[in-house]
Amino acid sequence: MRRFSQYAFEIGDVSHVSFWKKAGPMDRVYIGYGLLVVLLVIISYVLGATGTLPYDPQEIDLELIMAPPNTSGHLLGTDFMGRDMLSRLIISIQAYFLPGMLAIGIAIVFGTCFGVLAGYWGGALDIATTYISNLLNSFPRLVLILLMVAAFKPDIYYIMIIVGVTNIPVVASLIHSKIQFLKQKNFIEAATSLGLNNVAIIFKHILWHNCRSVLIIQATLGMAEAILMETSLSYLGFGVQEPTPSWGNMVQAGSNYFMQGKFWPSTAPALAILFTIMGFHLLGDGLNNMLERKGDR
């Protein structure tokens, strides 16, 4: 089955080749930038978790509502409750970090299972997983999330579960096509004839040696999507709820003043989103290019 997926791969067992040497100069920039973003995300997470912030992100100052940047020690100004923007920007990553991991985890674990079931064993399993994948693909994602959130609870974990679930088909089809390819190259046949059992073939040779890069890339993309999805939902009123800060609800709150000519309160978190998502996308793209260059040897 041929289906659009975000990456086209040259496939093969490439585990023994040093990637970095094969990366072109542009890819190094991409990956470098991506890694920088990941590093910043981790640093922000640690800063937030240990409470090492310029201000208490929950501290309200009604005398200082919507202050412009660099007012009385608030480097990025304050929000609609007089809370420090910079601290809230930093701690916002906490809203995404674990839930985003959950989304990625769901997509990868279930996607891999589906992909292996469909690709390795095929037959009725293939048909069943294809049906489920198609079913998940048929839902307009945001509408489904809207429905779930309105129906149950505007909780970031609910949102991320659905982002994860709707990403299952993407991962599944990637794994599936990879296994198909390996089958075509008689890779699996060869492995079986060497006396390897199914578990070893699937986990070690298929997933570990051939699919880990796919999965890493999917993970970076999943995080990016999770952040954008939360932002859209925040605009609709169903994103991360106050008082927990998230970039989405900060852009939303700030954009209430956009039309009055106060651009900064929404621009700062929007830029944070922009740079982070670009980082994840570039990281994914760079990794992809690097892996693919194997063919040019």
């Binding site: 954008l228 989405g248 852009v251 954009s255 039309m259 929404s266 989103i273 996308h281």
Partner: peptide
């Protein structure tokens, strides 16, 4: 080509309603 590609990354990472506000403004 690289510049144009980077441009596409930038626009893909913008919150859509915020861009809408910019356009309306």
């Amino acid at each position: 080509g690289w510049l144009m590609t980077v441009f596409t990354y930038v626009v893909s990472a913008l919150p859509v309603f915020w861009l809408g506000y910019i356009f309306i403004y």
